[in-house]
Design a binder for these strands. Structure first.
Lengths: 232, 232
DNA sequence: CTTGATGAATCGTTGAACAATCCTCTAATT
DNA sequence: AATTAGAGGATTGTTCAACGATTCATCAAG
């Protein structure tokens, strides 16, 4: 009976893949990608007609896609004016870091009871980041860094925390566009991440939390400084 | 110039009221009310045609309203099958409480640096709950209880935490429908809330956190027990 | 009792239409 | 010259009708 239960669990886990078909969601996927990678810089206005023709979907469908992304905080909808790629204010960046501090430190504290695989996952993304750095692919380093932090909150094994974290980090990508050099922003944290992962695996959550909080402080300050430059 | 800034701030605070015009949002408000107060029990299917005719809006507008509520986790959208009032599983209840533990304990720890008004707000909702209890209005007691817990996370002064918490509690209301007697569920916590508020104001976050965690344990257990009954 | 086919009901998506609103450009005024 | 007022065009907000796609319930056959 337990084998049967296992099989049922695996099958039901695959369900979301099947459901994934709605045109609006597919359009949202495309646009999300373009927003995140910077093809559509913050502030860009997304014309319904233009994009509708470009992607070959009707205005109604496109609008549903816009709604989806607005709810993810990647787009903003202004009445009778259209949708724009979200422009993160400095206050937004600070707020995102405030929430990350809460969720990720909770993740670190949960590391002592987390399953082995979850901890391995954390280290895996550290390795991925290092590999990407050796290839000089700094965008990939950024991605690996985000996955690393998502793996930390994944230690809580909470679907809602996972989703919240995913959305937070997608939002944060909007802020990265103000950073000119990706390398100088991402490279220093490779070592930090490795150290934090080791502390987690060795079972020293207190020190891991301190290191993590230090990371937040410097990364946040770096972003906010870039914002200040950009404004001036 | 500061008077000018003040005026501008007050004006921009009133803006959301003006913007509030979209038909979809108004429809969403109506449906949200009906879902929360139980007129539309969990599992109910919301037919586009039926509800569209009932409310006198087009299917497209209704669909936008559905999207809004789906994002609030009050409705679930199943492809080609329609939207349903969310049915919270026991695992969902547990997950919601897991996230509440994280956010609310963070709020408690932030109480030491929170402004006076924020702490007053916490106590205010305790009083409201007591008043509602004296009127025998147990639904209002439940509402006051939620506002009390939102006030605790509001100590963090983070818009994103506020929004997350609001959504969590709205979701949780879906679970309350399995509780037959609202009184037996809400009444015991009036005292707990009062004690926690006092501890916060007197500057004893450690004890407040312990009390809060104890509350979570009993409330969660109570809900899950009701779920187990319901299933059997 | 299970399997497979049929048809009704509902959703997904499109396209068009019109009203409401915003933006731009021009002209008039101070 | 700078500001205001207004006209016109462009875009969004909303509705409607239609058709293809999918699900569900029914029912017959094995």
């Amino acid at each position: 009976m337990t084998a049967m239960a296992d099989w049922a669990a695996r099958l039901s886990a695959a369900r979301p893949v099947l459901d994934r078909a709605s045109a609006a969601e597919l359009v949202a996927d495309v646009l999300r990608e373009n927003v995140i990678d910077g093809s559509l810089p913050p502030g860009t206005r997304l014309s319904e007609e233009t994009i509708g023709n470009l992607l070959g979907v009707s205005r109604n469908t496109l609008r549903e896609a816009f709604r989806l992304l607005s709810h993810e905080n990647l787009l903003v909808h202004e009445l009778h004016r259209g949708v724009f790629v979200r422009k993160l204010a400095a206050a937004d960046v600070a707020d995102i870091y405030a929430m990350r501090r809460i969720l990720e430190t909770a993740g670190v504290r949960a590391s002592v009871t987390a399953p082995r695989e979850a901890l391995d996952e954390v280290r895996r993304h550290v390795e991925k980041g290092k590999a990407a750095a050796e290839d000089g692919d700094w965008a990939a380093v950024g991605t690996a860094n985000m996955r690393f932090h998502r793996a930390i909150t994944a230690l809580l094994a909470s679907p809602r925390v996972d989703e919240t974290m995913a959305r937070l980090l997608a939002e944060l990508r909007l802020a990265f566009h103000v950073m000119g050099e990706l390398r100088t922003f991402h490279e220093p944290y490779l070592e930090d991440n490795a150290r934090i992962a080791t502390l987690l695996i060795e079972g020293d959550p207190e020190r891991a939390e301190r290191e993590l909080l230090a990371y937040f402080d410097t990364a946040e300050a770096q972003l906010l400084a870039a914002y200040a430059d950009h404004a001036g």
